[in-house]
Design a protein around this nucleic acid. Structure first.
Lengths: 214, 214
DNA sequence: GGCTGGATTAACAGAATTGTTAAACAAAAA
DNA sequence: TTTTTGTTTAACAATTCTGTTAATCCAGCC
């Protein structure tokens, strides 16, 4: 068999380090990830990491920015109302949930970063929190409209959005944690869990809005 | 003014170290807490920590055990059914929520420990997960009874318990995180948030169970 | 074939961390 | 007062981690 080129040139190593760093930082956060661990996972010496990215902080910021960009991109399409209220909301919940299921380590990573790297909270603030405000305002408005017209029960829109957000977030965080405690929990095994959980969350919110009416 | 005794004797130092350790470990987890930080917070040299507790791991286990004991104690009384179903359940939700509001750093601490100290998951398993099974079984039974008799809507009891658990847990975790991002969020400011959040959670569960009926 | 320049490694420096130990100390017992 | 006992400190060893650097390596170009 022809062996892989031991000596990679050009972007190859850089990309390998970047991928390794992404995985490690998402898994363990900034402080508990060592440059040596990243290098090992990428199959190079830790000096390479410093050669390409100068410092641990630099590469961390790149990983963070990438994560924030993905999250930001996922937030955009949630703000279209091209269908009746409930359909729009249900689609929003589903999109939010599916995104988290695809990037299940993102919530914990953000929690970690806010906890232990307060110096970068600004980035999170401006790229996630602030854009979220517009989305929240949008939903707040359409929920309020719907409530005022009596088509759904009276409910504080902020509370409802927190309900949706935290139910989805805790689902993926719980699953990640369960995987640590029950090693036998592979990827396929948890698909059923995620699916039934998503159904339950939607039904929960639907009951909250329409329970006493229809 | 008479000055504090610089040289404390007997249990004084040990207790001071224990308190400092508890605060630091709950705040930052095992690895990110250094014995020097604990000692500093307790106002002694880090050698004292080793004198009284031998190793960092020893004192961590004491802190963990204390936290688990508190959680375990809080789990016990949730299993009495001395009132109609909904009142019992509502009391259970309230107790669970209030406990978490009192120890808001406990969830993150357990998440941390499971993530980064897999060697102690056994302790968590036997003292929390296993006892929880009985409670879950109990609630599963009374929910199932209630559903079968048609007094509440058909619902998967496990899903409902996960709803309750994760809504409360995410509330306190979110609040803790918000405190990091918005420094102006003092203790009193958040009482209102917790109170309205608790009401919403109860209403959410109530709707899920009774929405289409009453 | 030999040169050049980027890529890679090994070795090192400096800081931080856990744990040990010998010496200093303070208070109660003798 | 002297001794004893438990407490505290300062200094040290061993390890780990980040970041630097000088030497080496290799591919393409002359």
């Amino acid at each position: 068999m022809e062996r892989q080129q031991n000596r990679r040139k050009h972007g190859n190593t850089e990309q390998a380090i970047m991928n390794a760093a992404e995985e490690m930082f998402l898994e363990k956060g900034y402080k508990l990830t060592t440059t040596t661990m990243i290098a090992e996972k990428a199959g190079v010496t830790h000096a390479m990491l410093h050669y390409y990215f100068r410092t641990k902080e630099q590469i961390f910021l790149k990983v963070l920015d990438k994560a924030l960009a993905e999250l930001q991109a996922a937030l955009q399409p949630v703000m279209k109302k091209d269908a009746p209220f409930w359909e729009t909301l249900e689609k929003g919940i589903t999109a939010h949930f599916d995104f988290l299921a695809k990037y299940p380590r993102l919530p914990q990573f953000l929690f970690d970063t806010i906890r232990f790297n307060p110096e970068v909270t600004g980035r999170i603030q401006e790229r996630i929190i602030d854009p979220s405000r517009r989305i929240i305002a949008f939903h707040r408005r359409i929920i309020q409209e719907e409530a005022d017209s009596g088509r759904i029960r009276q409910v504080d829109p902020d509370q409802l959005l927190m309900d949706i957000g935290s139910l989805s977030v805790s689902t993926v965080m719980l699953l990640q944690t369960a995987r640590k405690m029950i090693p036998g929990l592979g990827g396929g095994m948890s698909d059923g869990f995620l699916e039934s959980r998503k159904k339950e969350i939607i039904e929960l919110i639907r009951s909250r809005l329409y329970g006493n009416l229809q």
